[in-house]
Write a protein that binds this DNA or RNA. Structure first.
Lengths: 192, 192
DNA sequence: TTTTATTATTGACCGCGGTCATTTTTCAAC
DNA sequence: GTTGAAAAATGACCGCGGTCAATAATAAAA
């Protein structure tokens, strides 16, 4: 029943993550290959999979880590009170999410927790997104006929829509932030 | 410059598609392996890739085909006039999109046209979605302060959000259609 | 019918993610 | 120290998507 973790385990894991970070910094997430990571870390391939279920699990960890950092950053900032301010306040988060097509796809894929059993860091960030925005909306100058939670879920839906369109071959006319602002304005402060 | 297409080309392509359909019917999209398809079609592996850029291209074709059929079906029906009616009218489309996690992921991934150069059937369906809904909204009992096009884009955003949540480990309480109805009501007929 | 250029097919081969029986290392008990 | 059992690391191996130089089939020209 007991499962003592040896000291070298943490060291190996740290080396794998460091190696992966290095590869990504130089070539981006898309280009990461497990074989490169294990070679850079100086371990065998099998070792990698003793530490991460699969390649995606490593990616979820790495991307989740940076995503959390962006949330921390956004939570430090002032509380926005209008639709444009909200769009602007969320910008660091959206900017990272759309920094690479691969990143966006993975985030979307993991946004709803891959498996019932375990909820990963990315899915947790999506919960945090709604909580964060709902908190803002309680005191913001927005419609009050529906709950802040529902409003916040809508903000998330529009943000994802805007981000999707950013990678779209069609619809390249408007910029991402312009589009999001239009959506949020219509959603948060309807005129009729 | 001319590029005459031989007769057997069409035959081979048809055999590949038939074989793929067969595999999918028995085991679902997720389980499709190119090796199985070529074996069932009685051709070499290389032949497959002379007909489809990659596995995803076949999937996009097959899924796009069925998606188009659902759109045709929905366009035959009566024109909905309220938020719940709109949610209900779109149900055949949403139902297919969420029939399998693999299908949903692929549709989302191809919704924004994979490459600038070619816009595939799935991306075209997303355009059609907006056109279809915008057409309905022109005569529907909904807010008139923003354009039907913008409203329709919002409907799409909320539909995707609802579908995502369907595959989500968290948020399993509400059903897909209940959630979509709540969103659309708040989006299309705001009270304040 | 033979020739010839073009188009389609083939299958050995590669890359890379992932597995697992085997070996090596760790660390506590003596 | 020595020993022994659990934990960690290893690397040969597999599955499957995808490539490409070589080959075969086609259809039009001679």
């Amino acid at each position: 029943m007991q499962k003592t973790v040896q000291k070298r385990t943490l060291k190996t894991r740290a080396r794998l993550i460091e190696a992966a970070d290095d590869v990504i910094e130089r070539h981006g997430y898309q280009a990461l290959r497990v074989e490169d990571v294990v070679q850079a870390a100086g371990v065998a391939k099998g070792t990698f999979f003793a530490h991460f279920r699969d390649k995606d699990a490593l990616m979820e960890y790495l991307i989740g880590e940076r995503l959390v950092a962006r949330f921390d950053q956004v939570e430090q900032g002032p509380i926005p009170r209008t639709a444009p301010e909200i769009a602007n306040a969320l910008q660091p988060i959206h900017s990272f999410m759309t920094s690479e097509r691969y990143v966006f796809d993975l985030i979307i894929r993991y946004s709803g927790a891959a498996a019932i059993t375990e909820i990963g860091p990315i899915a947790r960030c999506f919960e945090r997104y709604v909580r964060l925005v709902a908190g803002w909306l309680e005191t913001a100058k927005v419609r009050k006929d529906i709950s802040p939670d529902l409003l916040a879920e809508g903000v998330q839906a529009f943000a994802i829509q805007s981000m999707s369109l950013k990678f779209c071959a069609l619809h390249e006319a408007e910029s991402f932030s312009d589009r999001l602002e239009i959506y949020l304005d219509a959603w948060l402060t309807p005129a009729a």
